[in-house]
Nucleic acid binder design. Sequence first.
DNA 1: CTCTCCCT
Length: 709
Amino acid sequence: MAFWKPGTAAPQLGLERPTGLSETEAGDTIGYNPHYRLPFKQQKLLLPIARARENILYALERYKTVVLVGETGSGKSTQVPQYLHESGWTQGDRVVLCTQPRRVAAITVAARVAEEMGCKLGGIVGYAVRFDSRVDEGGSRTRIKFVTDGLLLRETLYDPLLSAYSVIILDEAHERSMYTDVLLGLLKKVRKRRPELRIMISSATADAETFRDFFETFTYKGVSSEQSEGSNHDSTIVSITGRQHAVDVFYLSKAPRNYLRSAVDTVLSIIESEGRGDVLVFLPGMEEIDEAVVTVKEHLNALGGMENVVLVLPLHSSLPHHLQMKALQPPSRHVERKVIFATNIAETSLTIEGIRFIVDCGFVKLPVYDVRTGFESLVTTSVSRASATQRAGRAGRTGPGKCFRLYTEEAFSTLSAHTTPEVQRSNLAWMILQLKALGIDQVMTFDFIAQPSAEALMRGLELLYALGALDDRCRLTPDLGEKMAEFPVEPRLAKLLLASFDFHCTEEALTLVALLQVQNVWTNPKGRESRTIQEAAMAELASRDGDHLTLLAIYREWEEAGRSTEWCSEHFLNPRSLTRAREIRGQLRRYLERYKPKGSVFASCVDDSEALRRCVLTGFFFNAARLKSDGRYYTVRDGHPVALHSTSVLAKYGAPAEWIVYNDVVITSEPFLRDCSRIQPLWLMELAPHFYAYGGGKGTSISTSTNIC
DNA sequence: CTCTCCCT
């Protein structure tokens, strides 16, 4: 058939069907690819999406924006870029770009496509994620490129019109990460300047209309998309009908008093009375998971001999890598059934094969940013219907499944349809800085697909102004603001890094910022005994000046120990986290080399702890707290009561620190401050005189001067 | 008295 080359007249549509295959074989019930032993060419024709090929290609000729709806396993991510390549969208040096929310996804999908096309990864097909890319730079032969959405957002800083790309596919857009939402707004602007650009939004659930309407420039009330076929609409929806296996959903007739107990009971009854198949249980957090795993194991023990037949495992992000793998890999032969208790990590990020039963407790931990206090906290909330549907779908990948929801059907109907997009529950400073750097000054009127509150935007502007990234007219400051926007870290950390030249502590600042980027520097040992050993290991590395100096000591000792994994386990440190920090440090150092002021050097402050703590304060002067006579800490900014987190060395060793700077707040039973260091109150006024002032009167009292632009 | 998940 004739394929269309962009910029020429569109071809007539021909229909190319796989020969020798009946309708059913080519379609309906096939989701997870059971034909993996067939040659790629045949496999591709068996995918549900193959039947929608012509529809997709037609829609892309006719409409500027296409929303592609199809469930996971339909082959969207791997097939659509190939269709576009085959039909001319990559001719004339242009590239089809496909974004993924996660690094592993970008890499594995790229590898799969390269394999199907029979070419080398890094040739026609390539990928780019942070710290790892395989694209053909020199010959620029790469025609299909997979990237993380975060990386694409950075690319907009250097090429705002994204001129290399003929089609941009945003995959998994329904997850509505901050990156997705900002990219959607930006692409809508880019499209005005580049009418030939095609945008494809790929979404697994039924929020297709939200995306289509967002990109619709021609709107006429009361005209549905069906009626308006062929009119001036410029966006449309294409659905892929291929489905995965049916999942039967069961509800409780009465709300449970304790969902954890209910989850355990449900698992036990599945083990007792359901047929073969592994079980995946969704719980909100690590604590609940550990408790459930222990309880189920106890019950199995009591049943006698069952503990060897049923394998019960936890799965969450703070688990060491090899234990995460254990939950994903097929168990040994004598195990009849695997039961995984998992957080949301199993909802999108990790896929466990062979799951036939889902138990959904109906709750999730979500980060919520409190605009008033500026604290970000984890709140256990009810899942959305979209999320519950996604969880249920995890049982239907290899065969028909069952999903047990630990709430009533009525409760399900009252759940909100979608999880609140990240952009509406986050600190927006970073995002505002990106938009400003792109020349989008009016952030209040930026076309968000979900508008954040005016207060949240104000708070972000206020922070950026206080950091010196914006001037009093809310414009990006020519030197500091522009540099901060380009750093791959949040604005406060970027400020800290850039200020390090003034304090002659650049080497230490780099290490510190890199370590603050990674989670789980310390491992999480179980049992009292290993905890006591960990305490001793911590005491050995702890600094009386606080956590920042302690982090530096950890990194230095690790380097001196030849970055040995053994040294890490002796000190209960996570080698993967430290290695990752080292990578980040290297990248940040390269940025600083570019931005180094004339005549400055990469100095080390060695043992000058004060220099480093002052430097930290240049980025985090917002985050100061003081110990008052009642023995409690209060934030300096608005007198909010807070406490030291139990992991902070200041909570453990030495005399109590009266004034402290902190990087982070976690709210559990109350707000806890993490990554804290001892400071002098005078430093606050020296380093942020625009923000702090003497309150006058007796003693040291400091007030904040609110200066909002 | 202890962290959902992801990303530059």
